[in-house]
Simulated scan of single mutants.
Amino acid sequence: MPLREGEWNLSYSANEVHPGANFTFGTIASGYYLIEPYEITYADVDAGDVPMPQEDGARLGQDYRGQATITFEVGVDAVDEAPTQLGRHDANLSAVSTMLQAWDAEAVRRRFATPAVLRTTQGGRARRFYGRPRKAAPAGSKLTRQGYTPVVCTFVCLDSTAYDDVEQKVRIDLVPPDHHGLVGPLTTPLTMTGEGSGKVAGEVTVGGTKPAWPVITIYGPITNPVCDVVGRWKAGLDLTLGVGERVVIDTRPWARTVLRNGNASVAGLLTRGTPRLKDMKLPLGTQDFVLRGTDATGTAYMTVAWRDAYAYL
């Protein structure tokens, strides 16, 4: 559901007995408004510099950027919820409890590599961050009995990237190429090797300011499927998918999996020329996607999904 301008939403799924969350804050209408503007703090770069032996200076190495942290000062306001002080106090305690329950995030913090999603709309831009809520500190005071409590809380991101809230997705069908008759000798049964019709460069555009992480899903029947980002990289699998089967190559940092039919890892079947998952980013600009492989029916296809990525909101 789209958020109003200035709103934030923290969400994650339930996990067994631990409830999920769908908590909206940031505006007066939500009852949880920002006392001060949100603050995004970027971690220092982990520099790979190495001192030069027996001389001044250093040799520059590979640098890595850490996580971003978003800090909020939230006013939890229940002043108008009841006509009496006792009622306002009760309503405010309940509102603070609701926020702290969402920020506790036990459903995700007990699961390995599982992020929560923090969404917002700022300047008309719908963005999201992946990470986990961390600190939550309510500042109880005499105002709490009047229905108001300020809370300082933080959300630690997986990386330093803001993602478009709208997912982009394209479908590429496997269509046998044009041919001019059959060349003998022929044997039965006859099969045809096809390649995807692709998307013409200029038809599919990866936006944002940073390369994007794709999720590639290939649907059978197909043998030795290959996802070809033309001129960039190819991801191939040494396997055969039957009718109704699929394989998902998820390159996102919190996933990094290759799963057949949603549960069986087939990462070991990636072909030798396939890049590492962390190197399979989609470049900015217009791209041409092609599905290659062998399919006797010509009905195999793949989808490529991604979210445009930004260095800032």
Rank of each mutant, 00 (worst) to 15 (best):
residue 1 M to S: 06
residue 2 P to R: 06
residue 3 L to T: 01
residue 7 E to C: 02
residue 9 N to D: 00
residue 9 N to G: 00
residue 15 N to T: 01
residue 19 P to Y: 02
residue 19 P to A: 09
residue 24 T to H: 00
residue 25 F to I: 08
residue 25 F to A: 06
residue 25 F to Q: 04
residue 26 G to S: 03
residue 31 G to T: 05
residue 34 L to W: 02
residue 35 I to K: 07
residue 35 I to A: 09
residue 40 I to H: 01
residue 40 I to Y: 03
residue 41 T to S: 09
residue 42 Y to A: 05
residue 44 D to G: 14
residue 44 D to S: 08
residue 47 A to S: 07
residue 48 G to D: 07
residue 50 V to R: 11
residue 56 D to R: 10
residue 57 G to T: 05
residue 60 L to K: 14
residue 60 L to V: 15
residue 61 G to H: 01
residue 62 Q to V: 14
residue 71 T to Q: 14
residue 73 E to R: 13
residue 73 E to M: 10
residue 74 V to I: 13
residue 76 V to C: 03
residue 77 D to E: 04
residue 79 V to Y: 10
residue 81 E to Y: 08
residue 82 A to V: 02
residue 84 T to S: 15
residue 86 L to Y: 03
residue 91 A to E: 10
residue 91 A to M: 08
residue 93 L to D: 07
residue 94 S to T: 04
residue 97 S to R: 11
residue 97 S to L: 07
residue 97 S to Q: 11
residue 101 Q to E: 11
residue 105 A to M: 06
residue 108 V to K: 08
residue 112 F to N: 11
residue 113 A to S: 13
residue 116 A to W: 03
residue 124 G to W: 11
residue 127 R to T: 02
residue 128 R to C: 05
residue 130 Y to F: 15
residue 134 R to K: 07
residue 135 K to S: 15
residue 136 A to V: 10
residue 136 A to F: 04
residue 141 S to M: 04
residue 145 R to C: 01
residue 145 R to Y: 05
residue 147 G to Y: 10
residue 147 G to Q: 04
residue 150 P to I: 12
residue 155 F to E: 02
residue 155 F to T: 01
residue 156 V to M: 05
residue 157 C to I: 02
residue 160 S to W: 04
residue 163 Y to I: 06
residue 165 D to N: 13
residue 166 V to I: 15
residue 167 E to T: 14
residue 167 E to R: 11
residue 169 K to C: 07
residue 170 V to A: 13
residue 170 V to T: 14
residue 173 D to Q: 07
residue 174 L to K: 12
residue 176 P to A: 11
residue 177 P to N: 12
residue 180 H to D: 14
residue 185 P to Q: 08
residue 185 P to S: 06
residue 190 L to A: 04
residue 192 M to C: 02
residue 194 G to A: 12
residue 194 G to V: 12
residue 195 E to W: 13
residue 195 E to P: 00
residue 196 G to W: 08
residue 199 K to S: 14
residue 201 A to T: 14
residue 203 E to F: 09
residue 204 V to K: 03
residue 205 T to P: 00
residue 206 V to N: 06
residue 208 G to V: 02
residue 213 W to Y: 15
residue 216 I to P: 09
residue 219 Y to R: 09
residue 220 G to H: 08
residue 220 G to K: 05
residue 220 G to A: 06
residue 222 I to V: 15
residue 228 D to N: 15
residue 231 G to P: 05
residue 232 R to I: 14
residue 237 L to S: 12
residue 238 D to E: 06
residue 240 T to I: 02
residue 242 G to L: 03
residue 246 R to C: 01
residue 247 V to G: 08
residue 247 V to I: 13
residue 248 V to F: 00
residue 250 D to K: 11
residue 251 T to G: 10
residue 253 P to F: 11
residue 254 W to D: 07
residue 258 V to Q: 08
residue 260 R to V: 09
residue 260 R to F: 08
residue 265 S to Y: 05
residue 265 S to D: 15
residue 265 S to E: 13
residue 269 L to S: 10
residue 272 R to L: 13
residue 277 L to P: 13
residue 277 L to C: 10
residue 279 D to H: 09
residue 280 M to T: 13
residue 282 L to R: 11
residue 283 P to E: 05
residue 283 P to Q: 11
residue 284 L to S: 07
residue 285 G to V: 10
residue 287 Q to W: 05
residue 294 T to F: 00
residue 294 T to H: 01
residue 299 T to C: 00
residue 301 Y to N: 13
residue 301 Y to K: 09
residue 305 A to V: 03
residue 305 A to E: 15
residue 305 A to F: 06
residue 307 R to K: 12
residue 307 R to I: 04
residue 307 R to D: 10
residue 309 A to F: 05
residue 313 L to Q: 10
residue 313 L to F: 12
